[in-house]
Amino acid sequence: MSAIIEIRNITKEFKVLNRREGLKGSLKDLFSRDYKIVRAVDNISMTIEQGEIVGYLGPNGAGKSTTIKMMTGVLEPTSGEILVGGNVPYQNRTKNAQEIGVVFGQRSQLWWALPLIESFKLLKDIYQIPDKEYDGMLALYQSLVDIEPLLHKPVRQMSLGQRTLSDILAAFLHNPKIVFLDEPTIGLDVSMKAKIRTLIQALNREKHTTVILTTHDMGDVDALCRRIVIIDKGKMLYDNDMEHLKGFFGSYRTLKIRVDGDLKAHAEEIAKELPECSVSADEEWISILVDEDKATVMEVLGTLQTAHSIRDMQLQEISTEEVIKKIYEEGVQ
């Protein structure tokens, strides 16, 4: 394996205009303006290997887009180093562009009025794709998705799902080393989401393309990513495998039980019996969050059975969504 993207300590700062409020403020703005410096990306480092699918996550305004813009050569970092396929992106934007593909969920880069096949032909010329490779790619596409009905349809007449699919196909067309996907499944229905995930996975497998995926949909992450990177307020919070993520706050599982009698009263009792677990109750269930590093679920269950008659039970794994939410809200200790 070889590193395709290397980022070392990059930081990006922006100058932002402070606007004053109200009518009086606007009048003041006419004559004097003050600016403040905002640090969108703060000292981030990472290395990405050829062929990886990396989920790049973070709440809105975390600095994801800024990082991606720096990797694609649109923005120059304020400080730090980036190498993409051995190039410094912002110094050689066009050369870098040849090696990457970019998809923005809601902004089609295809020619609006043209049928998809004509857009493909133009891209073939722009990226100087040899005939053989181009034909091979189209054949691959045909084997993966049903593109026949799309090829002769102008992009503007497509549904959002079809358009996203087309955009993804267009981004992979010149067989780039890296493809950046910015919220590729935003606004799509369930079946279209699944279709797009399968397509991305297949293309990654077939072409060994590195994929950097930003998304707010944990379904995308679960289906595609082996590794995730999380940033917030410009700072790196997490960079590791998906498996580690769930164990990140300890190995938590939620045990839900139903008992005879008043649930609230039982819950209070249980809380006393199991001081290492957090216990809550609603109308139907008593939820016990078990940290398996301290006590296994079976041990907990054993303790419970001695004092309470359990009528029903459920065991829940903590979901990616919950972990990510926890990270966004609490950060990493």
Binding site: V74, G101, I126, Y127
Partner: peptide, 21 residues
């Protein structure tokens, strides 16, 4: 609207690519 960014990712001259549209 931020849409301009989409013109920045092609391996050809940006000015040309934008005007050719």
């Amino acid at each position: 609207s931020g849409d301009f960014i989409k013109y920045c990712f092609r391996p050809i001259n940006l000015f040309f690519y934008y005007q050719s549209e």
